[in-house]
Design a protein around this nucleic acid. Sequence first.
DNA 1: CGAGATCGATGACAACTGTCAACCATAGAT
DNA 2: ATCTATGGTTGACAGTTGTCATCGATCTCG
Lengths: 120, 120
Amino acid sequence: MKISAAESVVMEALWRESPLTSEAIMSQVCGPQDWTEGTVKVLISRLVKKKAVTAKADGRRYLYSPLLSRRDYVQGESQGLLDRLFDGRLAPLVMHLSEGDKLSDQDIAELKALVERIGK
Amino acid sequence: MKISAAESVVMEALWRESPLTSEAIMSQVCGPQDWTEGTVKVLISRLVKKKAVTAKADGRRYLYSPLLSRRDYVQGESQGLLDRLFDGRLAPLVMHLSEGDKLSDQDIAELKALVERIGK
DNA sequence: CGAGATCGATGACAACTGTCAACCATAGAT
DNA sequence: ATCTATGGTTGACAGTTGTCATCGATCTCG
């Protein structure tokens, strides 16, 4: 099942740390997102329904944990973009981003090191 | 304005070649997408309304051309993903994709060459 | 036991998306 | 002058998303 943008904000909180109570999730996301309690509750419910999150009963509340790993999510999103826009080829993606001119020297250095490592 | 997935299929046709009549667009996208005439017509209209496409009158029909460049679109999508999932850092993205193990030797070679070029 | 405080579930609603069909205007054909 | 084919505009409808408020069960404190 597909995870929406708003839902992914909740997932990020759970990937950072889990399990979490809904209260803890809210305290993490309500600030930056300016959401009310109700909004976050619904996002959590939808994620549970989508089986991206499990709810373990803990007394009267639930403890939520991700079922979908960040790794898998990120992999899917990245590969999807790559396939959709660059015919699955990595070099054109990197080229585009480097032309956007937002790469720091550090980015380039890291990338260089990484490519060395992959290449061998 | 945001371009949806279905709309981007129409945009791809126009980026490949433009201007095009709606008929030409349909012949390009109806096959792969299994869309009916009506569907494509609506997608085109919505793109015009969103100002992603212009319609120049040509007798009784229109000739459509992209207003949004593929370059800008791709840039936006790519940067968006990078910011959303990798905190704007390129190396982790490349790492993820390389771990997915779907990189060909050619990909790696291209990337290596590209990084050399950027680095200097 | 009764009054609040919690927490999840449910209902609501508008905007956007994917998908079509019906309608309408007009350029050509007869 | 009329008929028809063609292409654009509208209306429609279900599903998803973003956003909230209300309801109902339950736990806890006095």
